[in-house]
Design a protein around this nucleic acid. Structure first.
Lengths: 336, 336
DNA sequence: GTGAAAGCGCTAACAC
DNA sequence: GTGTTAGCGCTTTCAC
């Protein structure tokens, strides 16, 4: 078992050729160099026999290319972002790039640090996905000439590909209101929005979509119909409990802004009798296979993970990443 | 905006010192070299001003170290593996290693190819997680002297850290049988196992745990109580539908071998009246927050992601990865 | 306290 | 058809 790694020089010595010949054979430039078939074969054999593995640190250094392409995401353990990671790998592999996915835990300083690290490894492209603070990250990338695209959350310094949150929220709200039945009591005869953070761009757009549709289809809209209580399940649970107490029961429709919020809401709903649940229409922005099987009917919005990635790669492919465009990709409504 | 990257030579020229001085200042060996505080400060300033970013291809090449540590997983978009990825990153960061997570799609040839690529980038450690065929991968790692541990699925050529599937299946089965109520009809008065692949080590162990407990607590056990129909939801759905037809209703207890199988089973169960569901006890090996909120009560097994990773890193830390030990980590039973 | 120089493993221009 | 050579950007030994 050879413990010391073999290099092209070792192979060159064994084959009685020079290192450049070995290099040419082992990359794919050997046809142009018109190297003898026999020489090539011999070198290939030796490489196999001696378990040669190219040192990409060396070849990357020499070529000023790493072959690496990176993506940062907030977290791996999340349906949406792990789906994005999966799609990212597929698109990267199609292009023979080596994908690197790293999570940055919604921490702006970790986002920056991670991107700096990726740059020090000389990644050639970078997808900034769901970054809390995309612009400083973008700045670092630009300064180092790294092609990059913002995904999911838009920035002001590079092209962005995001979900069409406004449209998705409008569709969901329309569906909820159409499915709902009139209720006694002004307060309960309304649609309500719960979850997310109003500092968050995506949440803002969804609230806009929600309120615009409510204003259009119903007689009135009040600020009290929106509670951007945060993303955590516990917060959403508390928010809905409070709402229930305030308006004296469930409203006719409830827009829940993320599956994580839905987890909390569902915990509260489990404490209520079934008849009450069947009198309210629930909607969730984001999709989960099990959520669609809960005991109450639920309209869900599924983001177009593939569409987002395809567009991000299209932008990188055609070199338009420096243009500060924002492309919005429509999500899909999933009926119960 | 400086488009050309600056090197230690550029900084050296600007600071009127040599490249080796810059290098010492920018790594952390400058105290030992007793470099003047003033020199160090000046160099730091220049580095910041000129956006210096170390070239890790070069430094790695020189030091024969990459600072990289890799993990392969079957897929990102899976609760268990994405949880593993998240934990992996945490443990790697604690050690100042740079984590690389790549998915290999349960494809043995992609597993090999990916590991070869990671090795060509000179990763220093490797976690082989859920690999379909761990031994060839292990072989490549050994040949190149890369420290590695099998995780989730065991191999024969390196240390392995896996879930205690036998124990978990026993616990789950015991719980199911204890919670179940006797049924009329021999066939329906039994516990059944559905999902997974019998070629898969984890499934085998779970079937052993299941059948051993059934034999111990019930009068009899038959091969017909087990249907390792595959992992896909559709297959599990069909399997349960067939079982339902064969035994004339739901059994008294059902062991579902993965959340993905549960998705399919739940689709079938939704077509049945609630009373029928409440007469059967359901168990799922693997955990999902929404699954625990389905309309029928469900006992779940949650694998100890943190425990698995902690053990894998312990093995790497203490250098015992070459010993072919198999460590089993107990999962946790989640009652409805 | 700092500089000079060698070399990590590879590629590519040029030579013959 | 293949060899020679000069770096890519960094670290580290040795020198003073």
């Amino acid at each position: 078992m050879p413990t010391k790694k073999s290099t092209i020089y070792d192979l060159a010595a064994l084959a009685n050729v020079s290192a450049s010949t070995v290099s040419a054979v082992l990359s794919d430039s050997w046809r142009e160099r018109r190297i003898a078939e026999a020489t090539a074969l011999k070198i290939r054999e030796l490489a196999d026999k001696h378990l040669y593995s190219i040192n990409r640190q060396a070849s990357g250094l020499r070529k000023s290319k790493s072959g690496l392409t990176g993506m940062i995401i907030p977290q791996h353990d999340n349906r949406f972002f792990s789906g994005m990671a999966q799609a990212f790998e597929r698109f990267a592999r199609e292009r023979q790039w080596h994908p690197l996915v790293v999570s940055t835990l919604r921490d702006p300083s970790l986002e920056l640090e991670t991107v700096r690290t990726l740059i020090s490894y000389r990644v050639e492209y970078l997808l900034i996905t769901g970054a809390t603070d995309p612009d400083p990250v973008s700045k670092v990338c630009r300064q180092h000439g790294v092609a990059h695209v913002n995904v999911d959350l838009p920035g002001h310094m590079a092209a962005s590909v995001i979900s069409d949150n406004y449209w998705g929220a409008q569709e969901l709200t329309r569906e909820l209101i159409q499915r709902s039945r009139p209720r006694r009591g002004t307060l309960r005869n309304r649609a309500y929005f719960v979850g997310g953070l109003s500092t968050d761009y995506a949440t803002q757009r969804r609230i806009e979509g929600f309120s615009d549709v409510v204003r259009a289809l119903e007689d009135a809209f009040s600020e009290h119909q929106v509670d951007a209580c945060g993303y955590a399940g516990d917060l959403a649970e508390a928010a809905v409990r409070k709402l229930y107490a305030r308006i004296g029961g469930l409203p006719k429709a409830l827009f829940i802004n993320s599956t994580i919020a839905l987890e909390g809401v569902a915990r509260f709903l489990k404490t209520l009798p079934l008849e009450e649940l069947n009198d309210c229409v629930f909607g969730c922005y984001d999709w989960d296979p099990f959520a669609s099987m809960l005991s109450f009917p639920l309209v869900m919005v599924r983001q177009n993970v593939d569409g987002l990635m395809a567009e991000a790669f299209r932008i990188i492919d055609d070199g338009s990443y420096a243009r500060k465009t924002v492309v919005e990709i429509k999500p899909e409504l999933i009926l119960p």
